[in-house]
Amino acid sequence: MCYIICLLANFTVLFVVGKEQTLHKPMFLLFCMLALTDIGQSTCITPKALSIFWFRSKGISVDGCLTQIFFLYVLGATHSAVLVIMAFDRYVAICHPLRYATILTNARIGKLGLVGFIRAVLLILPMTLLLRRLPFCANRVILQTYCEHIAVVKISCGETTVNRMYSLVVLLVINASDLTLIGLSYGLIIRAVLIISSKKANRKALNTCTAHICVMLMSCTPYLFSTLTQRF
């Protein structure tokens, strides 16, 4: 049911933005990118999870598991990149409002999204290939409903130091760099808002960031919790 609601909500966002010409703006294009990554991530996990609960189909091939890991992590890294672009969008809108239309065009937003996707593929592909070379023991049981990288590494009976180190590097590169850029953007936004003397203008400026902050908290918190729990 939650999966269906997720699909309906995200496809509604895509339909409304695509249909309404007045919404063809950078902010709404970013919402569409987030909707696409949400659809992709939920589709990577939910169908297999439902087959486990409904049909007791608990098996998955090694290639199927690695494919799930690849797409799940690529979409997650792309989602993180889109959040960074959203923070930059809010920074330009508040700190350079007169130049907003020239700095952030729809084409430029599309290019930034493509760069985020390419970055994700280049970082995640080696991690998947490193997993492919590992030998696996007889007891290959993952204690969750989807193939998570560290969970798969733990069931290997080979040397996994390289896999663990590389996954930690990827985690730091993606999350640390993205959170730093988001924090920097909001630091500059807060500094610009404090300069404004009008309380009404202050409130209006901060309200434009509320949606992004909520999306970031809802998406980053569960991901970091899951990743750190698996690792430690």
Rank of each mutant, 00 (worst) to 15 (best):
T160K: 09
R133I: 09
G116A: 05
I189Y: 00
R132H: 13
R90P: 00
G183Y: 01
I109K: 02
R108A: 01
I94G: 01
V169E: 09
A192F: 00
L114P: 02
K111F: 09
L188E: 09
L131I: 02
D178I: 02
A120N: 05
I142A: 12
R90A: 08
R99S: 14
G110T: 06
G183A: 05
A101W: 07
I103H: 03
V162N: 06
Y91N: 04
F117Y: 11
S156F: 04
V152S: 03
A101G: 09
P126S: 00
V169Q: 10
V153K: 08
L122W: 08
L188P: 00
L98N: 13
L125D: 13
L131R: 03
L104S: 04
Y146R: 13
G187I: 02
G158V: 11
L143K: 15
R108Q: 01
V153Q: 14
M127V: 05
G110F: 02
G158E: 12
V162C: 09
G187Y: 01
T105G: 06
R132E: 13
V92H: 00
Y146M: 08
G113D: 10
S167V: 02
L112I: 04
A192R: 06
R90W: 01
V170E: 05
V173T: 12
T105L: 05
F136P: 00
C137W: 05
T180V: 11
R108W: 03
I124V: 12
N106P: 05
V115H: 12
G183C: 07
I118Q: 08
G110L: 07
R99P: 15
L143R: 15
P97G: 02
V92Y: 01
R132D: 14
T161I: 09
C95I: 06
V162W: 10
S167C: 01
I189R: 00
R133F: 03
A93H: 11
C147E: 06
I118P: 01
I124T: 13
K154L: 06
K154M: 09
Y91A: 02
F117E: 12
R119M: 10
P126R: 00
R90D: 09
L125C: 06
I155T: 13
L130M: 15
G116C: 05
L98F: 15
L104N: 02
R191N: 11
M127Y: 10
D89R: 03
Y100M: 15
R133Q: 11
T128D: 12
L104M: 11
I174T: 14
I142M: 11
R133N: 10
Q144G: 14
L134P: 00
S167N: 08
N175I: 03
L171A: 11
L122T: 15
T145G: 15
D178V: 04
L188S: 11
I142W: 06
V92F: 02
G183Q: 01
L125N: 07
S156C: 02
V169P: 00
Q144L: 06
T161C: 12
R133H: 10
M127K: 06
R99N: 15
M127T: 13
